[in-house]
């Protein structure tokens, strides 16, 4: 296949302990480390491996958001992507809009595969890939832990609740990846330097003539209700007694 599109979302880093703002307007992002959504990093790694095996000729990374997402795209280029597209979406950030943006880019680029993370670790929505596949009227293989491309088909192992499901899909298609698909490579310093020379195009979302999706309003953020700290017991006998006390044994 010719091209693979990969989505990279800028999110609060996996290791940051997220705090809700006291006014309930969202979570604290000032001075917080931002990174590529970990699932998206796995998606990019898989695309690069497919290209290195000779099954694709170009890997294009896409981010939708503000100008600051350039940072994540540069990291993607340093990992090995060939070029990057930033779609400046202003304040618009919802899965259906993301899916419509990807569809508009698909019409321009004609990729054989679109690989996305199975969810973003900020909004935990897990929608964009499935929505894109629906609008594109193409196969979706979600929560993938293994992806084998064979010509105009792919065999995908999906992590489902009861175990592993294996499906065959015709290409082009959308694949969303789970944690165990691969271990993303580390970026080396010379690659960071090289990445600065790779093309990064910015497109204003208005140029894509996307229909505005009906927005779901985020009214208020609050911290989760805490569980009360419990008691410590000294030994197994104490544990058994405590469980009996609660009627659990």
């Amino acid at each position: 296949m010719d091209k693979i599109l990969v989505g990279l979302k800028r999110v609060v880093d996996y290791n940051v302990r997220v705090r809700v703002r006291s006014d309930g307007s969202g979570v604290e992002t000032d001075g917080v480390k931002m990174s590529i959504n970990p699932f998206d990093e796995i998606a990019l790694e898989e695309a690069l491996r497919i290209k290195e095996r000779g099954d694709a000729s170009e890997v294009i990374v896409v981010s939708i958001g503000g100008n600051d997402s350039q940072q994540q795209l540069r990291t993607g280029l340093a990992m090995g992507a060939d070029r990057a597209i930033l779609v400046d979406s202003g304040e618009t950030r919802d899965p259906l809009t993301y899916a419509r943006v990807f569809l508009a880019l698909i019409e321009r680029e004609n990729p054989g595969l679109v690989i996305l993370g199975k969810q973003a670790i900020d909004d935990d929505n897990s929608q964009t890939g499935q929505m894109l596949a629906a609008l594109w009227d193409r196969p979706q293989a979600t929560f993938a832990s293994k992806l084998e491309v064979n010509g105009d088909k792919a065999t995908v192992t999906r992590e489902v609740d009861v175990g592993l499901e294996i499906v065959e899909i015709d290409l082009p298609a959308v694949v969303t990846v789970d944690l165990r698909m691969n271990e993303p490579r580390y970026v080396k310093l010379p690659d960071i330097m090289k990445a600065k020379k790779k093309p990064l195009d910015t497109i204003d979302i208005a140029e894509l003539n996307i229909e505005q999706a009906p927005a779901i309003k985020e009214v208020n953020f609050e911290p989760p209700s805490d569980r009360e700290k419990g008691v410590l017991v000294d030994d197994v006998a104490g544990l058994v007694a405590a469980l009996k006390d609660k009627g659990l044994l």
């Binding site: 809700v20 900020d122 999706a213 985020e218 953020f221 911290p223």
Partner: peptide, 30 residues
């Protein structure tokens, strides 16, 4: 042609729901 409300944990009304975000570190009313 609509966005989805993922992971409803509480119904506040016919069009108002609570759902977890940030790995459950925050709960948002939508």
């Amino acid at each position: 042609g609509v966005n989805q409300v993922s992971d409803i944990m509480e119904v506040l009304g016919s069009h108002s729901f609570k759902r977890p975000v940030y790995a459950g570190n925050a709960v948002v009313t939508v």
